[in-house]
């Protein structure tokens, strides 16, 4: 009889392409890695509602307002799917939120940048969601079942996000001089942070190797980043946007673009808490979480009083 509780058996299952479910044996570090990655992913979705949320009340048309609202709502929904998937590992949403608010858990640094003009909404959809989707498509095949299922659903729903962002950029580049300037300004500010979303180079990435071995992560940071670069640069050129990197060169032999050096100092500075909006984003989350606490308490109190009698439909 083989030992179902051994790391060797676990690795065999992974190597055979099996999915791991919540109750299956898993090495403690696999569980820890998943909890960290999934909760970080969930927090990113939820905090990610804020930069675009900054423009909901100023969206310039009824159509734009509906699209933006629906998109931000999706992000909330995706946070919710991911929290639920992470909860299968025995950590509650209450704990995840505490970890986020205490600063113990991270979220994607990209959301610590401000959304300053309407084209930022376009740039976030096109570049930030565009970068995220490259990562997420890959994560649909991740080895942990609940995570993989959540990602399948998320990818299906996100398919319009990047397109709506690119549509905004394209429209503005065809518009007035002011609109073109806004679009280029947004491009200049979001391009590099979007590239940093894939994380440090493979040689400097502390978590990558185990995650790849366990098939939590199916491709490396640099592989994913290159995919994003290759598909995005022609999209920028098509609508007349300049990529803010004078070192960009297409390598004819490989078909891949080469880019200039990424400013990793900035990356680590923002992760360390010194981005333009780190404090603002967390303060916002804490404020509305605390303001909602009496509502949640009331719902629980009502349920306890009426546990025998369920709410009647009026």
């Amino acid at each position: 009889m083989h030992n179902e509780h051994s790391d060797t058996h676990f690795q065999t299952r992974i190597d055979n392409g099996e999915h791991i479910e919540a109750k299956d044996y898993m090495p403690e570090n696999y569980r820890k890695h998943l909890i960290r990655q999934m909760s970080q992913h969930a927090h990113s979705e939820v905090i990610g509602m804020q930069p675009e949320g900054n423009w909901i009340t100023r969206a310039p048309s009824l159509r734009a307002k509906q699209i933006l609202l629906a998109k931000i709502q999706d992000e909330g929904g995706h946070g919710l799917y991911l929290y639920s998937a992470a909860e299968t590992l025995g950590v509650s949403r209450v704990e995840f939120i505490q970890q986020l608010q205490s600063g113990k858990a991270k979220y994607s640094s990209i959301f610590n940048y401000p959304a300053l003009n309407w084209a930022d909404v376009g740039a976030i959809g096109w570049l930030v969601d565009g970068a995220a989707i490259v990562n997420q498509v890959s994560l649909q095949r991740t080895s942990y079942g609940p995570y993989s299922r959540a990602m399948v659903r998320i990818c299906k729903e996100e398919s319009f996000h990047q397109r709506q962002g690119y549509e905004i950029m394209a429209k503005m580049m065809k518009g007035t001089k002011d609109q073109q300037a806004m679009a280029q300004d947004a491009m200049n500010r979001w391009w590099w942070p979007a590239l940093m979303m894939f994380g440090p180079h493979d040689t400097d990435s502390p978590h990558s190797s185990d995650a790849v071995k366990w098939k939590i992560k199916r491709e490396t940071n640099d592989e994913l980043r290159q995919k994003f670069i290759d598909k995005t640069i022609p999209q920028a050129e098509l609508i007349g946007l300049t990529v803010p990197d004078d070192k960009i060169k297409l390598d004819e032999k490989t078909g891949h673009y080469k880019i200039g050096p990424i400013n990793w100092d900035e990356f680590y500075r923002v992760i360390a808490g010194n981005g333009p909006c780190n404090k603002q984003r967390l303060d916002h989350h804490i404020k509305f979480h605390e303001e909602g606490s009496w509502v949640r308490d009331a719902a629980v109190a009502y349920k306890q009083k009426h546990s025998t009698k369920e709410l009647q439909t009026v």
């Binding site: 949320g53 609202l69 709502q73 909330g76 509305f288 949640r296």
Partner: peptide, 25 residues
């Protein structure tokens, strides 16, 4: 729509957004 990302719990945030979207439609 002003309440987006300000709900008392994530689920309710989405519910209020749905109502807002109905109204704008």
């Amino acid at each position: 729509s002003e309440l987006c990302s300000r709900g008392p719990i994530l689920e309710e945030d989405l519910a209020l957004t749905n109502i807002s979207l109905d109204l704008i439609g």
